[in-house]
């Protein structure tokens, strides 16, 4: 099975993927078997210098922003196969989430439970709901008001990783803490 260190590595990847999600969302969809050809990798010539290029240092995320939440707490925890038990590593992340949420009491979150593709649709919706509920209870026990937390299960319908392999399945067994209001991006 998956070792703890591997899970930690996976969570790190999950954060990186989320940070890049703005790029992945704009990817054209391959619909009804119509395959979009990959962009050409052939060099098309040098880029013409059309104007000055300025450089600025990028500071840390604005405190209290969604980006700050993702960077300091991490917004996704991962689960073992067919399990909704919060591991010690995931518990540490949730404790940090709870601290962050107590610091910014106007923020409301939605816990989204997810499952891998190795299960049938309805059972996986039920399983994802158990994962979302496990996270909700964890946050409530650490002082986050219940009325700031909604839950939903996406089952296997919203995978963050594609491809049929253990790595993708492990990443897709997760609960995502999404900030829905009370914080800038």
């Amino acid at each position: 099975m998956i070792t703890r260190s591997k899970i930690f590595a996976l969570t790190t990847v999950g954060v990186a993927v989320l940070a890049m999600s703005a790029c992945t969302r704009s990817r054209p969809e391959a619909d009804d078997g119509v395959v979009t050809p990959p962009p050409s990798t052939q060099p098309t010539g040098p880029t013409a210098p059309s104007g000055p290029v300025t450089a600025d240092p990028m500071g840390p995320a604005q405190p209290g922003s969604v980006r700050d939440f993702v960077a300091t707490a991490g917004d996704r925890i991962y689960f073992e196969l067919d399990s909704y038990q919060v591991s010690p590593e995931a518990g540490q992340r949730l404790a940090t989430q709870a601290q962050w949420l107590q610091r910014y009491p106007n923020v409301a979150v939605r816990i989204e439970g997810n499952a891998d593709e190795r299960g049938t649709r309805e059972y996986n919706l039920a399983l994802g709901a158990r994962r979302a509920e496990a996270v909700r209870q964890y946050l409530v026990e650490r002082g986050v008001a219940p009325n700031r937390i909604n839950t939903i299960s996406y089952g296997k319908e919203r995978p963050i990783a594609t491809g049929g392999g253990e790595d993708a399945w492990a990443r897709n067994r997760n609960a995502h803490t999404a900030i829905v209001s009370g914080a800038p991006q």
């Binding site: 969809e29 391959a30 009804d32 319908e157 919203r158 995978p159």
Partner: peptide
């Protein structure tokens, strides 16, 4: 259901 896209961009 007609399925399209993949990952978080799946459509059904």
């Amino acid at each position: 259901t007609i399925e399209g896209g993949e990952g978080e961009d799946r459509t059904s």
